[in-house]
């Protein structure tokens, strides 16, 4: 009963002050789903510059990246926020996987070390977020436990969430499968790389974060 009351009061205060501050929108998800590609797309669309580097090798983003003062406008709606791009959350990090992708051993070991720290930081930062965009690769199985754990933890913290099924430009993409895996959430299919369906994405972001 007390926890329900606490949650209620937290939501009331959150709603009272949410519109006055510059909110933090976090981009979360497993590695290589296209989080940084989406962050770059948002920054290109509204600031005219990119945010971070992307790579086919997993764990390219190993540190929290923040882009402040992004303002997006549509009709009468306006949203001002800081965008937080986070390292991909994984349950395993093996330097040998990086070596298989062509990295020398020392570089692979260093990347693995940084990647593990990145996962820890990403989870710690969840408490600082006002809204979370979960980026899933629409060509992959959405039922992975990492996806369920990320989304479950966001829900447990009462943080509004928008799920993005990325890479819909690829033939194997299946946004419907993501929708059936997480039926209680809004799911938008996009291609961050090609900029496909970004209008619908921004509209959904206004609804979730506005």
């Amino acid at each position: 009963m007390i926890s329900i009351f606490k949650k209620f009061m937290k939501k009331v205060f959150k709603d009272l002050f949410k519109k006055k501050k510059n909110i933090k929108i976090g981009i979360y998800g497993p590695p290589n789903g296209g989080k940084t590609t989406l962050a770059n797309r948002i920054c290109l669309d509204w600031l005219g510059e990119e945010m971070g580097s992307v790579s086919n090798i997993e764990h390219e983003t190993r540190e929290i990246q923040i882009k402040e003062k992004i303002n997006i406008k549509k009709d009468d709606n306006e949203l001002s926020f800081s965008l937080v791009d986070t390292p991909g959350i994984a349950t395993r990090v093996d330097y040998e996987d990086f070596m298989k992708k062509g990295l020398p051993e020392e570089e692979a070991k260093q990347r693995a070390k940084e990647a593990t720290k990145g996962v820890i930081d990403a989870i710690k930062w969840l408490d600082n977020m006002d809204v979370v965009i979960v980026v899933l690769d629409a060509t992959k199985d959405p039922y992975s436990q990492v996806n369920i754990t990320i989304i479950g933890n966001i829900a447990a913290r009462d943080i509004p969430v928008l799920i993005v099924g990325n890479k819909i430009d690829l033939r194997r993409a299946n946004t419907k499968k993501i929708k059936s895996a997480f039926p209680q959430y809004d799911v938008i299919g996009i291609s961050a790389k090609k900029g496909t369906n970004m209008e619908e994405f921004y509209e959904a972001l206004f609804v979730v974060a506005g």
Binding site: I89, A90, T91, R92, V93, D94, Y95, K109, A112, T116, K117, V119, I120, I123, K124, Q145, V146, T149
Partner: peptide, 17 residues
């Protein structure tokens, strides 16, 4: 997941859950 990441080394590469 956090604790797993803290304990990863060349022998222990993580978990499947």
């Amino acid at each position: 997941i956090k604790t797993t990441m803290e304990e990863i080394n060349s022998e222990f590469t993580g978990i499947e859950l």
